[in-house]
């Protein structure tokens, strides 16, 4: 199986409900026991309105968004993200992506995750495509 990728191609958006369960299970799965990611009262004492998603979970969701789209045969080579507006419980994050370049069997995808407050994450993912994948028309 190969993957056809074209620069300029937009990835379908992925809607992720930001539940307490997601925030807490993501924090624990990443072994991040900072109280602001599971204890609402402690988070408030530190000036945050509620618990919020940790950066490792955001990183994991961005990785998942890319491999969900391109399939299990691609390899993530690089994930670089910057956080902005926090992901609080009850919100929804919509991940969107656009292939910005395709070269030498790798594609670069610009990813943005927007929530009800603003831009939660902006990032760039470099993904290695399965050998023999047609790269399509490079704009």
């Amino acid at each position: 199986m190969t993957v056809t990728v074209r620069a300029g191609e937009a990835l379908p958006p992925l809607h992720i409900p930001i539940t307490r369960t997601l925030i807490v299970s993501g924090a624990l799965a990443s072994r991040d026991y900072q109280d602001v990611h599971h204890d609402a009262e402690a988070a408030r004492e530190k000036g945050s309105p509620d618990i919020f998603m940790n950066i490792l979970t955001t990183n994991g969701l961005v990785g998942r968004y890319i491999t969900d789209h391109f399939g299990p045969r691609v390899h993530l080579r690089k994930v670089a993200i910057r956080l902005g507006a926090p992901n609080y419980p009850g919100d929804e994050m919509v991940l969107t992506g656009e292939v910005t370049s395709v070269a030498d069997g790798t594609a670069e995808v610009a990813v943005t995750g927007t929530n009800g407050i603003g831009r939660h994450v902006t990032g760039t993912v470099t993904v290695e495509l399965p050998t023999g994948s047609p790269t399509g028309a490079v704009r």
Binding site: G60, V62, G63, R64, P72, H75
Partner: peptide, 16 residues
Amino acid sequence: AMGDTNPAYPGIAPPT
């Protein structure tokens, strides 16, 4: 936690 159903895992770990 991530809702990631990639069949490559857990044969390999998610890179992230």
